[in-house]
Amino acid sequence: MAGSSKQTLKLNLKIWRQEGPNEKGHFMEHKAEDISPDMSFLEMIDVVNQQLIKKGERPIEFDHDCREGICGMCSMVINGNPHGPEKATTTCQLHMRKFKDGDSIVIEPFRAKAFPVVRDLVVDRSSFDRVIESGGYISVNTGNAQDANTLPVRKENADLAFEAATCIGCGACVAACKNASASLFVSAKLAHLNLLPQGQVEAEDRVLNMVAQMDEEGFGACTNTGACSAACPKEIKLENIAKMNSSYAKAKMKSRS
C-alpha cells in the first residue's frame, strides 16, 4: 500500500486472561507477528486473535466499538498506562508505530472494585451508568429547538460545559487513579450539566445524588494527583473536581434532608 511503512513488527505480549468474573486470572504470553506499524493497537490484537482462532484456542476478549476514538468502549491498560503511553488517545487510536520491533507489552484490564472483570480485558463499567442514572440528566422539558440566543449562555460557561461534555465515559480516569476514584468522570458530568441554564434547576440534587452513588459503587477518594486528567483521552481538566467538591459542600449545607 502506498505510504505504508515497510517493516513489520514482532512483539511479545503478556496479556491478562481470565475465564469469568469469579475465576482466577493470570498472565499469558502471546506472540504478535507481522504487525504493520500502521495498525491500531486493537487491530494488532485482532491479528493475534485470528491466529489463536486458527489454532483452535480461545481468542482474547476485549471491549471495542467505534474504533475512531469517540465511543469510550476500548478499555485496557498498556504497560501500566490506561489507553497506552500517548496523551489524549484512546486505545483504538493508538498506533503500532509507537512501538519498536521486539518490544514486550503487558496488557491488563482496568482495575477497580467498581469495574469487575467480565473476561480477559473486558470489564463491567455499569457502575458509571448507575452514576449517570442518579443525576446525569435534566428533567426539564426543553421543547423544540429554539431560535439561537433566546436562552443566553455565557460564552465561557458554554465552552467549559462543552469541554466537560466531551467525556466519553471510558473509565480511564478510574483506571489511572491510584485510589480508583471516579471523581474526574463524575465532576465532568456535573460541569457539563450544571454550567448550563437547563441544568440549573436540579444542580444541587444532581451533585448530592451523583456523589452519593459514586461512593456507593465503591470508588476511592480523590488525592488530586492529576493522573486521571493525564490519562483522559479527552483531556478533561482536573479543575472540574475542585468545582464538584465545592458545590457538594455547598449543596450539603443548604440541603434540608
Binding site: P85, K178, N179, A227
Partner: peptide, 20 residues
C-alpha cells in the same frame, strides 16, 4: 477505603505523563 477500591493491583506501574 482506597485499598478496597482496587483489590487487584496492576502488574506494571504507570509511566510517562500518566505516572503518579
Amino acid at each position: 477505603k482506597n485499598r478496597f477500591s482496587r483489590p487487584q493491583k496492576y502488574a506494571v506501574a504507570s509511566s510517562g505523563p500518566k505516572k503518579t
